[in-house]
């Protein structure tokens, strides 16, 4: 197996429901995973408080907890309230830029809204202009909403995370039809799945992710390391694609 370095596209801080590891998952613990132990070079994190309590409150907590921790890259949770009109969306974007927030996450099911009534269109229009990445868990967004987003905002990189291994018949057409659709791999643990995805669509839109602190990074790392694909493809998946997406390479 090769010595790849991984940049985790799917992690969060704060309280969680995994009984087999300490909760809350604190920034110090996340930072301790960086480096030698598991070959992680960075983690893209949102804060559970922004999901379970209040997005704006949790986004601020994320700023506080990741301050001066350069290995932790910030993700803010967005709601329709920050996208009421162009002015509100502009303020949210400015605040993200001020705080070096790297990406946006949305939770339409947990936060009780839909994309197809244009609730986030003003924000997405601004993000679309900057090719600013948006993430969502598969359980949080309908396939119709995914297609609405991809069709309406064709420059907006969209990353679908926590996609189960049985969902290939949904994933493949999205990979084929929408060049801004990206797939995070933490739960896409398909037999010869990486080999098939790389052969059909290339490696540029596949992202390593763990699901920390709920899921373990090592099984996904092993899947990437032992896949029968080229080293360049492995490097893309492990780290380079996400850095490119976040404009950090």
């Amino acid at each position: 197996m090769s010595d790849l370095t991984f940049f985790d596209s799917n992690a969060f801080l704060g309280r969680h429901t995994n009984p087999y590891t300490e909760s809350p998952f604190r920034a110090e613990h996340a930072v301790s995973l960086l480096g030698a132990q598991v070959n992680l070079s960075g983690l893209l994190v949102f804060h559970a408080e922004a999901v379970l309590y209040d997005a704006l409150h949790g986004n601020q907590t994320l700023i506080d907890e990741t301050n001066e921790r350069p290995g932790l890259h910030r993700v803010w949770v967005a709601l329709p309230e920050v996208s009421a009109d162009e002015d509100e969306a502009g303020k949210f974007l400015s605040a993200m830029e001020e705080h070096r927030v790297a990406a946006v996450r949305i939770f339409p099911r947990t936060h009780n809204f839909t994309l197809t009534n244009q609730s986030l269109d003003p924000l997405f229009s601004l993000l679309n202009g900057r090719a600013f990445p948006v993430f969502a868990n598969q359980e949080e967004i309908s396939w119709d909403e995914v297609i609405y987003l991809l069709r309406s905002f064709p420059r907006l990189p969209f990353v679908l995370t926590n996609v189960g291994y049985r969902l290939g018949r949904y994933v493949d057409p999205l990979m084929r039809c929408y060049p801004t659709f990206h797939l995070e791999l933490s739960r896409y643990q398909v037999h010869r799945g990486l080999e098939d995805l790389c052969r059909k669509f290339g490696s540029e839109r596949l992202l390593f992710g763990s699901g920390l602190p709920v899921f373990s990074p090592e099984p996904v790392m092993a899947m990437v390391m032992s896949a029968q694909i080229g080293l360049h493809d492995k490097q893309n998946i492990a780290e380079a694609n996400l850095r490119r997406l976040l404009r950090r390479d």
Binding site: Y165, Q189, V190, H191, R192, G193, S216, E218, P219, V220, M221, A222, M223, M225, S226, A227
Partner: peptide, 9 residues
């Protein structure tokens, strides 16, 4: 399932 992940864990 993907056997690599099962071995890797």
């Amino acid at each position: 399932l993907n056997a690599s992940a099962q071995v890797g864990k």
